[in-house]
Amino acid sequence: MTEEIKPDLEIDLKGLLCPLPMVRVSQNISKIPVGGVLKAVATDPGSLADIPSWARTTGNEVLRVDKGDKLYTFYVKRVK
């Protein structure tokens, strides 16, 4: 059972390829308050590696990744 995470903002990254998924996450995380959660839905399998790497580099936190059928949903918490 997974706990429901309520995002402050949702973005659609479907169809976008490297480097756009991480660029869009970075551009949108600044729109939410510190402590808030950004939900991003991507189709690029590369983003499975890239978005967590981006979070570690920037000091933010990926709370959860849901892997659906060619659909990857990221919940990213803005830490700073």
């Binding site: 480097p19 660029v23 551009q27 890239d50 981006w54 580099t57 920037t58």
Partner: peptide, 11 residues
């Protein structure tokens, strides 16, 4: 340009 934009997005 991909490295440049990725790095800029990573702060």
């Amino acid at each position: 340009f991909i490295i440049a934009t990725g790095a800029a997005a990573s702060g």
